[in-house]
Every structure is written in structure tokens, then in C-alpha cells.
């Protein structure tokens, strides 16, 4: 069964732009990305869109559909009614390059700021031995496809450009959690999570979790456990009192 769907697609660049109306054919089993491709083939050959795998695995096709951060290739047309107007815009937390393509380099910069995996000194590659239960927990975070939908939806930076400097965003705070929970990582990441990467900005309102296409429980399994570790270290009055009383050097 095919029908004509009403689309509103944002077109423009980093200075101006607006929503354009299109009436496009939709066939059974299609996803929003198919419609965008049909639009390129018929009405708008110069429409810019980033995509790669069309299987929800490369994380390239992130956009906002009816105001919700989603993957274009994983949003089925069958989730809309036939008379619904479907609005597609680029991610609204990052600078736009053209049409549906945004500049997500903020995320690459944040990724580089996190110190990489640090095995204990003296342990060479090939000598790593870990128990299954110990690595299991952080495996969940490795499902991440780096679509940055969580980064896009997080109000800390979406609604406050000025916080981009001091906040790494859910994706990279989760990366810190992954390393912190790694049985062989020997770096101290807790204090840094709070002081350098802005964990304190997160108010656990769970939008990152809500939009993650991989269903990673970012808030419950990465962010809150990191907050608890920070509380262990920084806000434990007993530890604090002890360090005041005995004037211990910061370890």
C-alpha cells in the first residue's frame, strides 16, 4: 500500500533556513531515510543528509523527527498515521552545516579529552586476564554507535551553549564510567569526572537514556554509579572530616 505523506523538512545553512513542505510517496515497510532518499531522487537533488549503513549501526543519520532525536534509518513510516505531517530537522544542539547535516565535532573534541585505557604498569598486551563477571558490566556501554543523539538531547548543552566548554555530555561521561568499571584500568577517573568533565551538571533527568537507539541505560548504569563514586570520594563527610583532622595530602 503506498500513499503520499506530508513532510516538512528543514533546509538551510548556519545562517538562515526554514521548513520546506513536500508531498512524497511512501511504500510499505519504508523508514524515514527511504523517504529522504526518494526526495533527493525526485524533488530535491541537492538535499544534504548524512547516512551510511541504513541499519542503525553507523550512527550517521541522526536527526530530529517531529521534534524527537532519532535515527532516520530506524524510524519506521508505519509509526505515523497517513495524514500526519512529519517534520524532519537537523540536530538542534550542534551547528548546522547544510540541511540535515550538522557539525558534530564537539563530540570528537570531548572524546579526545578523556584519558585512554590505562593498564596497570608492567602488564603487557597479551597478558590481560579478566573474569567474565568483571568485564560484563561495562560491556553494555560498548554497544554505543556514537550517534550522539544523547548528546543532542541533553539539556545541559542543548539549552545552554555556554556549558559545552565544561560538560562532556552523557556519551563521554559513560565512557569514563566504562573505563572506571574496567577491571584492568588503573587510572583514577572519579575526581576528574566531576572536576574536569562536568558530571555535576547532569541532573539525571534521563533524556539521554530515553533517546539512545541502543537502549543503553546511560543514567542508571553509568551516570548515577559515577555520581555515587564521586560521593564516595568527595562528599563523604566522614572522609572529609578525616582529611581535615589529619591534614592528609590529596592522594
Amino acid at each position: 500500500m503506498s500513499y503520499k505523506a506530508k513532510f516538512k523538512i528543514w533546509r538551510g545553512d548556519d545562517q538562515t533556513g526554514e521548513l520546506h513542505d513536500y508531498l512524497i510517496e511512501v511504500n510499505e515497510g519504508e523508514v524515514v531515510l527511504d523517504i529522504i532518499h526518494r526526495l533527493q531522487a525526485t524533488h530535491a537533488p541537492d538535499l544534504a543528509v548524512r547516512w551510511n549503513c541504513k541499519a542503525g549501526k553507523c550512527g550517521s543519520c541522526s536527526a530530529e523527527i517531529n521534534g524527537r532525536p532519532k535515527l532516520l534509518c530506524m524510524t519506521r513510516m508505519s509509526t505515523f498515521t497517513e495524514d500526519e505531517v512529519i517534520t524532519v530537522t537537523p540536530l538542534r544542539a550542534f551547528p548546522v552545516i547544510r540541511d540535515l547535516v550538522t557539525d558534530v565535532s564537539f563530540n570528537y573534541k570531548k572524546a579526545r579529552e578523556i584519558p585512554s585505557f590505562t593498564p596497570p604498569p608492567g602488564l603487557g598486551p597479551g597478558e590481560y586476564r579478566m573474569k567474565q563477571v568483571d568485564v560484563e558490566r561495562s560491556q553494555e556501554f560498548r554497544k554505543c554507535i556514537e550517534c550522539f543523539l544523547c548528546q543532542d538531547t541533553c539539556h545541559v548543552i542543548r539549552d545552554h551553549e555556554e556549558n559545552k566548554e565544561s560538560f562532556a555530555g552523557p556519551r563521554f561521561l559513560m565512557r569514563i564510567a566504562e573505563l572506571e568499571m574496567h577491571p584492568l584500568d588503573s587510572a583514577d577517573r572519579v575526581r576528574e569526572a566531576q572536576d574536569e568533565h562536568g558530571l555535576g551538571y547532569c541532573n539525571i533527568t534521563k533524556c539521554c537514556t530515553e533517546v539512545c537507539p541502543e537502549g543503553i541505560k546511560i543514567t542508571d548504569n553509568a551516570l548515577i554509579p559515577m555520581k555515587e563514586r564521586v560521593a564516595d570520594r568527595k562528599y563523604d563527610p566522614i572522609v572529609w572530616l578525616g582529611s581535615k583532622l589529619f591534614k592528609r595530602e590529596k592522594a
Binding site: G17, G67, F94, D159, E161
Partner: peptide, 18 residues
């Protein structure tokens, strides 16, 4: 400062959620 910050897509609506 937020979704209206310079260089972001020019969309005046606070949200396009329906």
C-alpha cells in the same frame, strides 16, 4: 544561548514535538 545559539539550525519553535 540554547537552541537559538549562533550557527545552529534557525528554528524558532521551542520544540517541534507533536
Amino acid at each position: 544561548s540554547g537552541v537559538g545559539a549562533p550557527r545552529r539550525a534557525r528554528i524558532s519553535a521551542r520544540t517541534l514535538r507533536t
